[in-house]
Amino acid sequence: MSIDQEIITAYNDGMEDYAFNLIIRHYSTRLYNHIRKLVPSHEDCDDILQNTFIKVWKYLPEFRSESSLFTWIYRIATNEALTFLKRERLRNIISLGSKEAEVASRIESDPYFNGNQAQLKLHKAIASLPPKQRIVFSLKYFEELKYEEIAEITGGSIGSLKASYHIAYTKILNLLEKE
């Protein structure tokens, strides 16, 4: 029995708290790593992760196994991250300032960043992408999900996701070429 099946069985047997604790223990690290690649600070990532779990708890009774539990949880987390990124982008537009340099410096000075120079360049390039491209690139490149799985998480057609990934990939290559 997979962990997802164990969680669903426990929940259906009335052990809601146990099922939810299993979700937190099983998905915390994976979701944290996913969200962390999308947002520039640990604090923002922490907020998004907590909101994700609160929503998982809130909407778990409505989960109908039409998609896998993994996809369903990832969809919630990705939507939370996307909402955050859109809000940040809007704030940047209102303040009329380019935040790209600020985001890059935040990554450089992040005490929780333990990567090498190549990783630093890559994540600075990713931070310059629009929110949706950033999410599609992250899900495909880091999580190595199939386009069908990405479509279940983000919505949209497979064709548009392929195009989005291709654009993001090319942009990152161009940015790496410049440096």
Binding site: I24, S28, T29, H42, F53, N114, L122, Y141, F142
Partner: peptide, 26 residues
């Protein structure tokens, strides 16, 4: 460079015992 598997590794590590406290905070 992009095909380098090391690039796909997560370069961030959360604060110590972050996940231990997360369950309780949630």
């Amino acid at each position: 460079i992009l095909d380098n598997p090391d690039l796909k590794k997560n370069p961030w590590s959360p604060p110590q015992e972050y996940f231990m406290a997360l369950e309780e905070r949630v």
